[in-house]
Design a protein around this nucleic acid. Structure first.
Lengths: 108, 108
DNA sequence: CAATTATATCGTTACATTTCGATATGTAAC
DNA sequence: GTTACATATCGAAATGTAACGATATAATTG
């Protein structure tokens, strides 16, 4: 067993309960189409159909992805006629997406 | 179909192929025990047994989590006798973990 | 060499997620 | 009212993932 000494700084650990929440959110984010949807919504307001077209998937599947992300607090929606516009609700998504983009490309 | 105008800035989109890679990595990260392991390794070098104890899991399961994270390039390991020390290989983990901590707690 | 310790791997079971077609709901156009 | 459109929901099939006990390897101790 490791014994802590004065020369050893105390280890900062987030409680497991908080890490479970974090893992849930990351799992929700961890899908290529959902990443693209978030990336688009960080740049504007879009309808289900527009997001589906950008991801090259049928709109009923985009709808499902949006429902998942709405359920964990990432997004909100506003109906306008028969269109449904989605937008970012969780502001931390900007910084997390920034990290992802800086690692996986397409940032000058 | 949405028509782009001068007042509308061009939409920056990471290619789907890159988002698939990103999603893979996020999926690997999206587990409470793996998050704790990464959080610890960002603060030092630890053995399988130490990481397992901190996560309160049997060490053969810690070993499995470590294997997954090593396989996607997050970690490397160095044997010393019968102990195996793991450490961070992917430097972007620091900033991503920073985002997660700032949202899910335990940062003053 | 036998026993112990630290880590890794295997095979199975249980559970969750993704995707898809079909269908439903609500709104607008004719 | 009927048709077309946008979105949402349902159920099934396929696939993926997590956890576990058992077992294996490899280094150290006695």
């Amino acid at each position: 067993m490791k014994v802590r000494t004065a020369s050893m700084p105390t280890l900062r650990l987030t409680p497991l309960a908080a890490l479970e929440q974090a893992a849930e959110c990351l799992k929700t984010l961890a899908h290529p189409h959902r990443l693209r949807i978030v990336q688009m919504l960080l740049q504007g307001r879009y309808t289900v159909g527009e997001l589906a077209e950008a991801c090259e998937i049928p709109s009923h599947m985009a709808s499902e992805h949006l429902r998942l992300m709405q359920r964990c607090g990432f997004l909100t929606s506003e109906k306008d006629g028969r269109k449904n516009f989605y937008q970012i609700a969780e502001q931390h998504l900007a910084s997390i997406m920034g990290c992802i983009e800086s690692r996986f490309g397409c940032v000058p």
